[in-house]
């Protein structure tokens, strides 16, 4: 299990993998979709989450409620670990 599955770790992962361009201090409750994440980025995100955290997110989790902020995304991943 990846110890960095918190909001800061998610922001770092999104930055490192180039999923969406974020400042390093992007807030835990910041809107990732407003920051430029789109449906193609979400497809990449699902692949990257699987690589980093061993969790295969599915269509049921592909919602703004589950993925829309770093904090919510971290919680969604933790719930599946």
């Amino acid at each position: 299990m990846d110890p960095a599955c918190d909001a800061d770790g998610i922001v770092a992962m999104l930055r490192d993998e180039g999923i969406v361009e974020l400042p390093a201090d992007f807030p835990a409750d910041g809107d990732l979709f407003a920051a430029g994440m789109d449906s193609m980025a979400v497809m990449q995100l699902i692949v990257v989450v699987e690589e980093h955290h061993g969790v295969a997110l599915g269509p049921a989790e592909a919602t703004r409620e589950s993925l829309g902020t770093p904090a919510r995304l971290a919680a969604t991943i933790r719930a599946r670990q």
Partner: peptide, 15 residues
């Protein structure tokens, strides 16, 4: 059209 859900379905289909 739910683009996010469809995207996730495609990723699952590839997987």
């Amino acid at each position: 059209l739910p683009p996010l859900v469809i995207g996730a379905a495609i990723v699952a289909g590839v997987r």
